[in-house]
């Protein structure tokens, strides 16, 4: 009987580690292999032939339409600059400059279902004289640029920069993407 225990331990460990780690990597492990820019994380190599196996598996599992690196780069934010989870019941300010681009969009969506509740796009934004913008993400109407969160629970921001070459250059890890600051809750 004792001789059977060791093979059982081996099989349980192998299956647990093998499939458990794979499930975690595919469902929750986006943060592990992504590149981080402040609160934003993403895979600038996602649409290229250099795409890493984890990102490729994540892409296949998620089923999202691929975006070529020459077309654009996507970033996600689930936390504000204080490190707290984003909530649709709170008011946030997305403020700063975007790296060079032809167009950018920010979507507010449910991180579980990917349902998009609202979005903003650069072509319809008001900018200050130095090119900076201030976008309110809030459940109540705000003057200026505003996306309604409709008092939802957890939210996620999805930023897509179309036709940007900012992330192909050496030193692109120094790029600063806009801050996501909590204004009121």
């Amino acid at each position: 009987m004792k001789q059977l225990i060791y093979p059982i331990v081996l099989v349980i460990t192998a299956l647990g580690v093998g499939f458990g780690l794979s499930y975690y990597s595919l469902e929750q492990g986006r943060e592990l292999t992504a590149t981080h820019y402040g609160v934003w994380s993403g895979w600038p190599e996602l649409g290229t032939a250099q795409i890493d196996p984890y990102a490729r598996a994540h892409l296949a599992r998620q089923g999202m339409l691929p975006l070529g690196k020459g077309e654009g780069v996507r970033f996600f934010a689930q936390r504000d600059t204080n490190g707290d989870t984003l909530s649709g019941r709170c008011e946030y300010s997305v403020r700063g400059h975007m790296p060079n681009h032809a167009l950018w969009t920010i979507q507010v969506r449910d991180p579980g279902t990917n349902q998009v509740f609202g979005h903003a796009e650069s072509g319809q934004m008001q900018f200050s004289s130095d090119g900076a913008f201030d976008l309110a993400i809030a459940p109540k109407v705000k003057p200026g640029n505003w996306v309604n969160t409709d008092r939802l629970g957890r939210i996620e921001l999805l930023l897509t920069l179309y036709d940007t070459n900012a992330f192909t250059n050496l030193g692109s890890e120094e790029i600063e993407l806009p801050q996501v600051q909590l204004e009121a809750c």
Binding site: V9, L10, V11, I12, T13, A14, L15, G16, V17, G18, F19, L21, S22, S25
Partner: peptide, 9 residues
């Protein structure tokens, strides 16, 4: 078991 788990992963 851990090595085999890594290979499965």
């Amino acid at each position: 078991g851990l090595i085999l788990g890594g290979i499965i992963h």
